[in-house]
Design a protein around this nucleic acid. Structure first.
Lengths: 113, 113
DNA sequence: TTCGAATATTCCTGTAAAGGAATATCCGCA
DNA sequence: TGCGGATATTCCTTTACAGGAATATTCGAA
């Protein structure tokens, strides 16, 4: 999992853009309008999102339509999966760690008693 | 979905910490050792992660054991869900947008036919 | 080719955040 | 109560990044 993806989503306006694009592809102007951003800032944020591979652009006439790219989302999903799995087994296993500590020290195996 | 979560994960070292904690709770010293961080930086990153609600601390003797908090991950999962759903219906529907454009123009309502 | 709409880029400034080094704090124990 | 290990905090400096304003670029149409 790449920190770049999170970095791109860390900025509130960019997160808003992503969530807006969830409803479908959209040209820059409309994005700026809906989110009440100045056009240059919208373009700049879209640039960052694009560099991070989160969105993709497709020119139509004199507009540039931006849309989401699925892959980073899929990667995030797989990443979350690894945590889900860890959860099931050793979730809150603080005691596991404590047990490790005990083992580390001189304490000899007391035969389970 | 909160940008704070992404912000916390946007820093490579913090992302490493999170992935390290996936294997179980761990005291600061061990985290610092394994990731080759200086202890103060480790503490500082853990502070950020803690403020973001991604980790939780539990004191044991003179150590402080950090562990993951499930909730932000669950929230991220739900968030991803909203995209998965959007995918299924209107994924790449660029043509939807183009159709909208057409509709916007003089094209009269055709009676829902 | 010229014009205008739509969009991208540049320059500037303020600010938030990260690492390094030093230091403070906390806690169990002798 | 004082000590030492473990951890947190502070101060400082450097750098990355966001917004504002102005400007450059692109593309289609006349």
């Amino acid at each position: 999992m790449n920190a770049t993806t999170f970095s791109a989503l860390a900025e509130p306006n960019r997160l808003d853009i992503i969530e807006l694009l969830r409803d479908g592809p959209m040209p820059v102007g409309e994005i700026a309008d809906r989110l009440e951003l100045h056009q240059p800032q919208a373009s700049k944020h879209l640039r960052v999102l694009s560099d991070a591979g989160l969105v993709e652009v497709q020119p139509v006439a004199n507009k540039r339509i931006y849309k989401l790219c699925p892959q980073p989302f899929l990667e995030m999903d797989e990443w979350l999966d690894s945590f889900r799995r860890a959860w099931e087994e050793r979730f809150d296993r603080l005691d596991d760690y404590l047990r490790e500590l005990q083992g580390m020290e001189k304490k000899p195996d007391n035969g389970g008693k």
